[in-house]
Design a protein around this nucleic acid. Structure first.
Lengths: 209, 209, 209, 209
DNA sequence: GATGAATGAGTTTTCATTCAT
DNA sequence: CATGAATGAAAACTCATTCAT
């Protein structure tokens, strides 16, 4: 299921890799997976078409690789966390801390801001079992796990269908993400500092009765 | 800027129109605006390509026209409402009643369920000033109006940026819409009856501090 | 299985159709189905790529359509014949007469000479169930029928596996066809007249013990 | 014009060479020269693309080298033979013995069965003077030599154009070869023993009046 | 000796749109 | 009113070959 650890891509000159990823992230975020044009990506990045296919199997491989790398960077920098280790007292503050660290990471890796825009479009892929579709389902399963844990701990409401809670949570996640990306450059330090508390509070209001 | 009131389209045979709209709604909902193929739509509906271009300016015109017609049907059936007429006591219950009537309408006009799927994809159109983009902005302005009125009445929080409230609201709207569409056929009468109260309560929790 | 009788293609201007078919036949005969390049065909014929796809589903459709039209012209002009109606006395002379008529037809429709070159390459298509593969199998079944009939009448040998007889017959058919095409322009009237008798005699020697 | 006798290829590790030739023979036999993909061959054999180009000039060189090596192995094992040494009495029995030895060789070197499949596709190369085309012409010249010798000895018919005899002979050769390859695994010992006599008899019937 | 990396030119197919009739 | 016909531009992807190391 997982791609071999060592890839040709790893040996690609750092600068060219950066240029490619930047162009691709921009394109995917703007047009979604299906709408994105390899031609445009290549034009922007200055890479040749055959080179792209030397490093990636196809369009989907380029896309999922970028998502996986983004996630892996995020997780490594933020520090993973184990849903099973959550307890009732620290449930929400854990996510607040996580959020705070995520902001710090993005602050240092600005290209990651495109990540959300790329990711949330996955939902719409109609092809079953496609690489992109599977990725979205993985993310969804992860959210489901957290919500279930919260319900087991008694800190997440149980009066609504779980599927609805999951969908709403992911939607809120997406809209906050988009909002932050769109307003990032205009946000002042104090506002950024207040964001984790305020935004997690939104999830809390949504997910508790 | 505004489309002439009387259109060629109005003279199109009702049955052919229905077939076209059905095919188009299906396609747009499945693949989004950009991903949708006019060729597939025409093949499904049996209409000729040149006929389509006789009744519509282009792809975007077909799309926005459908959205507008859907909205117009919805509004007519549900009964319009005037944000300025809202007051603090009836603010939320008004939307609850609106929601209840919307469910009844959709129940009688099943093709409207495709509407949401078509509509929410508009957000992603990156072309500035495009017909589809403008439509989405119109919808957004409408939500903004309601939120502002709520804030003026003191029933909607003011501790968060208005743009964030709007985005989150539209996101929740979308996810609930999607959820309802996806689960519609499995919902029993009692569950449907309970939905307006429960779902509006979610907006209320999100929008009040 | 069979394509609808009325096709867009039938309305294509005769001259353009002729140019297209000529270019395509040349290309397919020279490079085989897989090796043939649509680009080259279009360049030679002056037709635009999208026009080609207006008249044909895809490359395979163009190819099989040409084969079918060729066969249909051949059969119509030569006059069909029924294997079941063959009898021992006239078995070989029937094919001699057929051959003679085929030569006359090709003499009047020179473009048909490419037909063999196009057809015999079908054998090599590795994709099972492909349109091109099925066509070749149909032809093979037809030869099989004739050989079986010959065996039932006692005029075709039974001391060799039937599959071997079929394969050898088709091979001889192909090589004679190729030879005739290659030498057509240098053949004189008297030689052409003698061909049916001489060539059918070759099949006779091969297929009788 | 002629390739140097000593080649880099000779220094290539025997096992790697075997892997390459096996993959290439499979690919060429399946898709023909033009249709074969170097990429697929290299992937199957595990060799790097640059290594291939170190040992061979190009695709055609790989192909012809393989054919030549196959032929050379066949000839060495079967024992060469000199057309000039043929005489009227032993003309056909010589080929029968040759055929018998060829079967024995292939029986011991199963990879040679791919040879025919590779070889006969050469005919179709439309590029004049190409390496593959020249190889086919060489083979054809060889067959021509034998037929001429047969005619000089009075054991091969002269009532048909020589070119036609050559083409028909090669076609029959090909179809028998294909048939044998396709049915090889289902043939029993007795059947294999009878084959040389039966198959050579076919050539005899074709080539004598 | 050996190979990783790069590429231009090629492939088939689909797109939304226009125009003459 | 209606449509059949035509098209340029773009899509994703594969090809055989070369070159610097």
């Amino acid at each position: 299921m997982v791609k071999a650890m060592s890839r040709r891509l790893d040996k690609l000159d750092a600068e060219r890799q950066r240029r490619l990823f930047e162009s691709a992230a921009e394109e995917f975020a703007a047009y979604g997976f299906d709408g994105a044009s390899l031609n445009r990506i290549l034009e922007k990045s200055g890479m040749s078409k055959s080179s792209l296919y030397y490093y990636f199997d196809d369009k989907a491989d380029l896309f999922t690789t970028m998502i996986e790398r983004s996630l892996s960077v995020l997780f490594r920098e933020i520090g993973g966390f184990d849903p099973a280790a959550l307890d009732a007292e620290t449930f929400w503050s854990t996510f607040e801390a996580l959020y705070r660290r995520a902001i710090a990471v993005v602050d240092r890796n600005l290209w990651l801001v495109q990540f959300g825009g790329m990711f949330y479009r996955l939902r719409s892929d109609p092809r079953q079992g496609s690489a992109t579709g599977r990725l979205f389902l993985a993310m969804k399963g992860w959210v489901a796990l957290i919500i279930e844990r919260g319900q087991a701990l008694g800190v997440v409401r149980t009066d609504l269908p779980q599927s609805l809670l999951i969908d709403s949570t992911m939607s809120l996640l997406e809209s906050l993400d988009r909002w932050v990306v769109a307003h990032w450059s205009q946000l002042e330090g104090a506002e950024k500092d207040a964001m984790p508390q305020k935004h997690i509070a939104l999830f809390r209001r949504l997910l508790t009765a």
